[in-house]
Nucleic acid binder design. Structure first.
Lengths: 226, 226
DNA sequence: CGTGTACTTGAGTGGGCTCAAGCAGGGTGG
DNA sequence: CCACCCTGCTTGAGCCCACTCAAGTACACG
């Protein structure tokens, strides 16, 4: 929206040097250690935002897709907080940060849109925190939840990430992911479909996944009150 | 800031019915299932934002403290996404959501401030995701990281939450939390201090905690390339 | 045809969970 | 003032899920 709406045309009219870029799958947009220099609007494709913790483990904190804005935090700070990597081929428009800041200042209506974008991202982060990362919920349940979030539209298709990526979202090892996915395939709930490098996906039995995702097998015993 | 800055005076001048409220420790501001009806500015105290996942487990997704705004998402949606509970006695000013929306519309400068607030919250959420919830990092390390985040200013004091609250942040059971805290106390890194219901805290050996928090004992073996 | 990357599979281990019981302290009411 | 409760915390024993390490397979690509 931000780029597709008013703002894009306005930006172009602004005579700013906008680069229209194509990143191929696996390419890095920028690194955690870089100074903020631009924001990117996603036109097409899937981007992962990752962080490396103190022990060097990779962790995916969010996905960005069509009409999302990458590196929005650089409006307020020069420290990038993530590394951004394309998961599929991605088309982006790059807006130098100084121009973007100026543009925001000149267009108050945009501020509310960006605020809303930010709230959306926050909502997704909260979702991940509450659904995807609890040790107290079995890994299989969390994986089912993640697969549902990766559903493509209303279809029976689900994005098929690399198993290490599945792992760095829900916080378990690739080996365990592999075992769980094979289990789901053995049960006929998941089937490999599509071809690399794009379109890699699963055909999924959505109702079955929803059933698994609501699993309450490990509900904590509450002390009885007589 | 939002409440302490321009906006508060402006709001008052606006003749809006602002309630100035005091919640005691443990009191609920609002529930996940309630319709959005207001935002709250925190003047003093600590608020936790919790969610209950499909299996009924409680999960803390964020803390809010002085100068933060609670229920900011209700600017855009009527669905509350969390339950908000006071952890200490808390002083809040309550602004009915219709007034707040109107006020935002009339005061563009506020939009940028709220956008920034939202980015701050997002940053904290990302931090939690990347540092606090990885199963692949030992629980003790994650607990040390959490304790450092709960540090009070630059002192050697750390907020002492209930063990179930510690648990619902990093995703482990209260029993394990208890064992780990006792371990830290046995090592002289942590000492109980302060009195209930407020001021409950630990005196901590901060450098020791930092050491533990950077632990790399479980770094994954990288396949050697000869 | 060889090399690298992604994934699979197996065996063994251990950290954190479950269930269960007991303790400590601060209210509250008799 | 004590008895009682209730909530928060502790401690123990046993188990199991997910981890570690290690080796092997599948497949894409030059």
């Amino acid at each position: 929206m931000v780029c597709a709406d008013v703002s894009l045309e306005d930006l172009l009219a602004f005579h700013t040097p906008i680069d229209d870029l194509v990143f191929e799958a696996g390419a890095t947009l920028y690194n955690e250690t870089d100074k903020a220099s631009a924001v990117y609007c996603v036109r097409h494709g899937l981007i992962k935002l990752v962080r490396y913790d103190a022990s060097g483990n990779q962790r995916i904190v969010r996905f960005l897709k069509k009409s999302d804005v990458v590196a929005l935090e650089s409006v307020f700070t020069d420290d990038q907080q993530h590394t951004a990597i394309a998961l599929t081929e991605a088309h982006l428009c790059r807006i130098p940060i100084t121009h973007f800041r100026q543009f925001i200042a000149d267009h108050p209506a945009l501020q509310l849109r960006l605020f809303e974008k930010s709230q959306e991202a926050l909502r997704e982060a909260d979702n991940w925190l509450s659904e995807l990362v609890s040790n107290t919920v079995p890994a299989k349940v969390r994986l089912a939840r993640l697969l549902l979030q990766l559903r493509i539209g209303d279809s029976d298709r689900v994005h098929r990430l690399k198993i290490t990526d599945f792992g760095s979202i829900i916080g378990i090892t690739p080996e365990t992911i592999s075992r769980l996915l094979n289990e789901l395939m053995a049960d006929g709930i998941l089937m490999k479909a599509g071809r690399a490098p794009n379109g890699r996906n699963y055909r999924a039995d959505i109702p079955a996944l929803m059933l698994i995702s609501q699993d309450g097998s490990r509900v904590r015993q509450v002390r009885k009150s007589y």
